[in-house]
Nucleic acid binder design. Structure first.
Lengths: 123, 123, 123, 123
DNA sequence: GTGGTCTAGACCACA
DNA sequence: GTGGTCTAGACCACC
């Protein structure tokens, strides 16, 4: 896995799993891979996976059936809200960062559309 | 100063000074406040300031005249490029994050447009 | 350790470790001694070691696995290039210095050849 | 002037003047430029020039005639010895550095001749 | 145990 | 006064 060395691995794991849930790769009510399997999949210490899953459980995005495994919440609305909330947060902080750079909202939209201020195209 | 407790202070200092350079609060070729003065201003240890400025010097955004002080690069193009580069990076990672959330480009633009005047987002 | 009092310790540490890498005393991909251990070995403060290793990391000669240690780059070509580059730099600056002294290339070669076995020079 | 930011300016001034003496740009017994003129020439503080000249005077490479100026030593042998001594020192430390890099004397001579080990040519 | 950050404080060379 | 180096020591998150 290509983990960013500057943020804790467990946070990056949380993010990956959240995205998987949001994108429906784990269905609502569906069973997660086991801690050991996830550890192998992402090549990290099982403790790290456990820590990530604990936090997701605290956020009630997943729940544990003892002796049976961990499952995605059945609450589809919760999942949808999570998605919207994350999108809003991303958008707000993006707009704020651009503003801090001294870039107007109008210019920002040009960046979004893929055009520099000077007319060239962004990759 | 209101430092975010989750990211190292020196990185936040770097960001502040970069924005100050981009916004022209430090002019190209202009002298920075001294290490000690900045330390007092931001209420941190001079070593922390030194670390931040070292990194900015590695990025060639500032340079040092020994026994005289530290100065913003005279290369105005470099400063302009920095601004554009930062804007592009912000935009790219924003778009990528939204995509990872499973949000289409069209939807993303709605989030952007949905911004209220007070910076919040309309769903 | 026998540090030269006129150059910063961290630069001398950098040089030692670079030579160790070049000479294969640390293998490509191999683990470095821990910061604390190196500090004990060279009898300096861990911060001084950290500073040196930071610079080596910026030069991409070593990399860090968080909570695991620091490792020599796996890129053997990079290491070989480093050796060649250092040799070229040494040679170029030596030749330039001799030239600045007003010593011809022909004379310079006599100085080189005049070396005794014990490393001293025959006039 | 292009001073190296890592070594004191007065040492760099000393080096320049020594080279000028060795190369005969200042003749034995000849008058040096005044402190003020040198300060203007090299765009440094007159104190820095004074410090450099003091050291050269301690090494008896120059001498002062009160109210008249500073002069290069009349001792031509001393100047010649200085040149040889510097050449030997340069050569010795160059050879030692190459050896520390793990480069044999034979290879070193190839570098001098401008050929890499792999047959390509050095610029 | 690993590295990373930060502080307080000292000392230095230089201009 | 300027920046640079170094130390001692503390605290932290992570694995």
């Amino acid at each position: 896995m290509n983990f960013d060395n500057n943020t804790p691995i467990y946070l990056q794991i949380i993010r990956i799993i959240k995205l998987d849930i949001i994108k429906g790769e784990y269905k609502p009510g569906g069973k997660l891979l086991s801690v050991r399997t996830l550890a192998l999949k992402y090549k990290v210490n099982p403790n790290t996976i456990a820590k990530a899953l604990n936090i997701l459980e605290n956020e009630e995005l997943i729940y544990t059936e003892r002796t049976n495994g961990k499952f995605v919440t059945k609450d589809e609305k919760k999942i949808k809200n999570l998605k919207i909330e994350m999108a809003i947060n991303l958008t707000n902080s993006y707009l704020k960062d651009m503003e801090n750079l001294g870039i107007s909202f109008k210019e920002t939209k040009k960046y979004i559309e893929g055009r520099y201020d000077d007319g060239t195209i962004r990759m």
